[in-house]
Structure formats: structure tokens, C-alpha cells
């Protein structure tokens, strides 16, 4: 894809985990060779079960965790090749919104100070008045009123705290906004407010979004493309319409079938078609296809041979030995 400003090239993040008393440390492959590109203004969803490496991948892009191998390429330049000074503007152009809204806000700062902080650090050229104007405008954009500017985080609800976190992240007009489970801790009725807000911000600002979530229905609404991770590896990467309309990978299919829908005529039967089993230990991933221990279509070949990530037409990638036969059957 041309015009990508962020590119991951066979990115690996391994953690060293102590094996216990007198046992050697073991390697945990949290992200194991993920490649992808994000275009300006695009929202990319990252989905998969707990522990599959979603947050680690996001943190690696933000340089919050050491990359073991592979590269993060920003505007054509590998991040590791940048000097500390060159990194500064880059940090400003990547921002993150966390899952727990209240915990991510400094309790001793007012809302106005919290949102102004990134400007103070990265936009020293602005006067105090200019800063205040920008903060007030930003707060209004996320649906908070000007008269709340001098209040402290604990005076706000979870949904409002998440708006503050989003305002802080958006104030520098970043190129990339990373959202790690931004609505998971919120009440159902508030989730929709935040999803709509993110949709609006994305449309108006042209900011790209990396949206990490285990809520597939939310990802489907917000993201143009979706990466399905399993034990640190890409299972499927496809445009949302294709992925949700006709999932190819057995794991994607299983995940989609597990999402409950509020229809008493359909949901009872869906319950029985969900994925079986649980994620294997990432310290001892299965041989061959990592998904094979839970795959109803696994054959001998899946045990011995790692499926390569195939490039399909329509901007789609899949790692499964049997996707073609399975597609024919479906």
C-alpha cells in the first residue's frame, strides 16, 4: 500500500520469563513476526483473545517496550535509526488512550492542566493564552464544557474521564492515535458516546487509529481493516467488510461466532457454535499452525508445517493451510 506512514516489518517482541527456582529463563513470544502498514486516516483494529499480544504490539509501535527483532518504520525511516532529538516530534505525533480512564489521569492536576500538558511539552512556541484557547476548544470537541476546565479528574464519571484522556491525546493533532481497549471499562450506554466521538474525531482530523479491542462489534463499526492475532502471530488481516462478511480463517470464524447478539431466536444456537478450548500457554506454543489445537479443521499437515501468511487479492492476508477448501465448503 503506498502512502503508508507507519510500517511494521516482521516485528518481534519476546519477553524473558523466569522458569522458576533453578530453572533457566524462557522466551515468551508475545509478538512473533507481525508485518503491516497503516495509511493516513485509516483505522486498523487489532483483535484476538486475552494474551494474544494486542497491547504488546501497540506498545512496541509507541516504543514503550523493547523490540526484539524486526522494524517499526515511520515515514520511511526505521525508528531505531532516529536520534533522541529526531524522536521528539515523532513522540508528539503518536498518542495513546488507555483502558482505565481515571487511572491514566494525574489526580492532582485539573482537567485544563491535563489537556494542556502535551502542548506545554511539545509546543513551547504557543503563548499561555493560545494554549488556553486550544484546550477549551478541544474540551468542547470531546463534549465537555468550558466551565469544567478547573475541576479534578475524580469529580468526573468514567465516560467523562475517557473524554479527557481523548482530549489530551488529540490536542497535538497526532498522526496516529493508539486506543487500547478505550471503551471496555465503560458502561454500555456510555460506550456508544465514546465510539461516536472517536468516529467524529477520525472523520474530522484525518488521524489514523490503531484500535485494540476484544469487542468485535465495536471494531467492525470503527475500523476499515482488522488484524486477527493469535499467540503473537497474524492469522488474518483484511478489510472489515470482507473479514466480518466472509471470515476465511477458522480462528476468525470461531471468534465471530462467539460474539453474543441480543436476539433470543438466534443467540441460544450461537452459544453452541463458539470456539472450544482456551489459548495454549504462550511459553509452549503448538508446533505447525499455532491455532491447530483448537481448530476443528486441523489435519496432519497443520501439526508439522507452519502456514505462511498468504497475500490474497482485495488487500487480504491469511495464514491457514486449508482456507481455500474451507472457503469452497462454506
Amino acid at each position: 500500500m503506498s502512502g503508508a506512514f507507519l510500517k511494521l516489518d516482521a516485528l518481534r517482541v519476546y519477553f524473558s520469563v523466569s522458569g522458576g527456582w533453578l530453572k533457566p529463563a524462557r522466551k515468551l513470544k508475545a509478538v512473533d513476526g507481525v508485518s503491516l502498514e497503516i495509511a493516513p486516516g485509516e483505522a486498523l483494529g487489532i483483535v484476538g483473545e486475552s494474551g494474544c499480544g494486542k497491547s504488546t504490539l501497540a506498545r512496541a509501535i509507541l516504543q514503550l517496550v523493547d523490540v526484539t527483532a524486526g522494524q517499526v518504520v515511520w515515514l520511511g525511516r526505521p525508528i531505531e535509526s532516529l536520534t533522541v532529538r529526531q524522536m521528539r516530534p515523532l513522540r508528539a505525533s503518536m498518542q495513546i488512550v488507555f483502558q482505565d480512564p481515571l487511572a491514566s489521569l494525574n489526580p492532582r492536576m485539573t482537567v485544563g492542566e491535563i489537556v494542556a500538558e502535551p502542548l506545554r511539552v511539545h509546543r513551547a512556541d504557543l503563548s499561555r493564552e493560545q494554549r488556553q484557547t486550544e484546550v477549551a476548544q478541544m474540551l468542547e470537541r470531546v463534549g465537555l464544557s468550558r466551565d469544567q476546565i478547573n475541576r479534578y479528574p475524580h469529580e468526573f464519571s468514567g465516560g467523562q474521564c475517557q473524554r479527557i484522556g481523548i482530549a489530551r491525546a488529540m490536542i497535538l493533532k497526532p498522526k496516529l492515535l493508539v486506543c487500547d481497549e478505550p471503551v471496555s471499562a465503560l458502561d454500555v450506554s456510555i460506550q456508544a458516546q465514546i465510539i461516536n466521538l472517536l468516529e467524529d474525531l477520525k472523520r474530522e482530523s484525518g488521524t489514523s487509529i490503531l484500535f485494540v479491542s476484544h469487542n468485535l462489534a465495536v471494531v467492525r463499526r470503527l475500523c476499515e481493516r482488522v488484524l486477527v492475532l493469535y499467540l503473537g502471530k497474524t492469522m488474518e488481516l483484511a478489510p472489515s467488510a470482507a473479514l466480518f462478511g466472509a471470515p476465511l480463517h477458522p480462528y476468525t470464524r470461531g471468534l465471530l461466532a462467539s460474539v453474543p447478539i441480543p436476539d433470543p431466536d438466534l443467540q441460544p444456537a450461537r452459544l453452541e457454535t463458539s470456539l472450544t478450548g482456551e489459548l495454549p500457554s504462550p511459553l509452549a506454543p503448538p508446533s505447525g499452525c499455532v491455532f491447530r489445537t483448537r481448530c476443528e479443521f486441523a489435519i496432519e499437515r497443520c501439526t508439522v508445517e507452519v502456514p505462511v501468511l498468504e497475500q490474497l487479492p482485495d488487500n487480504r492476508q491469511i495464514a491457514c493451510h486449508r482456507w481455500q477448501e474451507l472457503q469452497l465448503k462454506a
Binding site: 464519571s157 465516560g159 458502561d187 454500555v188 450506554s189 456510555i190 460506550q191 456508544a192 458516546q193 465510539i195 461516536n196 469487542n215 468485535l216 462489534a217 465495536v218 467492525r220 463499526r221 472489515s240 466480518f244 465471530l256 460474539v259 447478539i261 441480543p262 436476539d263 438466534l266
Partner: peptide
């Protein structure tokens, strides 16, 4: 009714707007 409309559904058309419930729980 509002709770149902505010829930993103995996089986509903994406172009249907998500109707948030205003205010706080």
C-alpha cells in the same frame, strides 16, 4: 429500547447510527 439501540451489534448493518444514551448512569 435505548440500551438495545446503543449496543453495537455484530449482525446489524454498520451504517445504522449508534444511538448513545446521553447523560450518566
Amino acid at each position: 429500547a435505548a440500551l438495545l439501540r446503543s449496543m453495537p451489534r455484530i449482525d446489524a448493518p454498520v451504517d445504522e447510527p449508534l444511538v448513545a444514551i446521553g447523560g450518566q448512569p
